[in-house]
Design a protein around this nucleic acid. Sequence first.
RNA 1: GGAGAGGUGGCUGAGUGGUCUAAAGCAGGGCUUUGCUAAAGCCCCGUAGGGCUAAAACUCUACCGAGGGUUCGAAUCCCUCCCUCUCCGCCA
Length: 423
Amino acid sequence: MLDPKLLRETPDVVRAAIAKKRIDVDFEAVLALDVAWRASLQEVETLRSHQKAANNEMAKLPKGTPEFMAKVAEMKNVSGLAKEREVGLKETEEKWRQAVLSLPNLPHTSVPDGHSPEENKVQSLYGSHEAPRPHALPHWDIPGFSRLFDFERGAKVTGAGFPFFIGEGARLVRALVHFFLDENAKAGYVEVSPPIFVNAASATATGQLPDKEGQMYETTPDRLFAVPTAEVPLTNFFRDEIIDEAALPVCRCAYTPCFRREAGSYGKEVRGLNRLHQFDKVEMLKWVHPTASYDELEKLRGDAERLLQKLELPYRVLLMCAGDLGFAQAKKYDLEVWAAGQKRWLEVSSCSNFEAFQARRAQIRFRSKDSGRPELVHTLNGSGLAVPRVLAAILENNLQPDGRVKIPSALLSYFGKDYLSFV
RNA sequence: GGAGAGGUGGCUGAGUGGUCUAAAGCAGGGCUUUGCUAAAGCCCCGUAGGGCUAAAACUCUACCGAGGGUUCGAAUCCCUCCCUCUCCGCCA
């Protein structure tokens, strides 16, 4: 959520930023609602003020006197009117709130203009993704793949996109999760194991509700939502709280399974491990002082990159252009790992600075020593990392002529063997 | 799941229809006294939003778990929901 004051005080800045982000919202209508809301608010407040003054007078009058009864009669009218106007105010306020919520976060000045994924800037390349790998295969075509990654039985038991991971397949998943958590701990992120179902208030605070409701699995009858990412429970940890300024930055990470309905996805995008309804991910979160958030974003990206480097996987870093930024992000880097068999890049991490956008919605603040007042923190998050796609890249890039897969040396102590074998 | 008790400011805790942002204490901040420490005294100390401002000052409104209701007026009475605690039941 944007600062409502920003709309009123510098509408041109907001207007320009919305245009840069290429999001279709009627900003002028939002401004009009803001005016209407304030007018309605003032009207109601004047009535209430009148009521309050009368109440104070009546408190001093003996009850039952003609004077008192006259006041009661008079205030009955005011009370009725106030109630009526309050209903109108609530309606206007709700419309206003929805309108402000429909405004996207403003892109940071360092974010390039552009409206399609092609206009994202390749910030850096690591490793030799172009090295010839004559025997590389898409991971789903590797002989014996389904012995370790059983999609058919997953589909039978649950549905498409819910595979079983078996034997060394399961072990490799566990090794990756363990490796990620250990590395993140070394980088200063405190490990958290959060609830993997959240209530509607939490899903609203991080922006899954109301717009992306169809992307989550929802339980009945309790109306809890299976988390699409650990970002949701982690960010909500501090919802409606004031963090001690000295504690900033707070850095945490969490492993959770993630659940996404992925309505509307199709084709090669969803083959094999590329896109699952349930997948494992370690997420890194930061709550930082507003002055530090862009430095922290670079550190966060570095922390995610280091994981890929230690796994010796070729990857690239994209700086997302304004038009390809999400609704809530001010700046975002995507890390894409090279999958040699599919000959394509797979997104395995997305490191974003939300500035105060999430914090305002979730009311996460710190008490500033300077001003003595609570101020909104800046929040950042990034995957570190998403397991199945990293797994796919390992399978494809490290496939040997004999059909085995070489395990990255960083995983040896977790996996326990040099090679994964499909037979 | 059943029965009972309770949810008030950063914390403890009073307040059962009227001038209540809400006593008191603790914690925090400032000043005075004091050689230091300590102690004492005095004062300040919630959040959000609106108005007015260059910005403040100022001013108005809301907020006593959440949402409804009764009333001229609700922290206080009524209803619904949520959460916590105690006991019982069930159960990894």
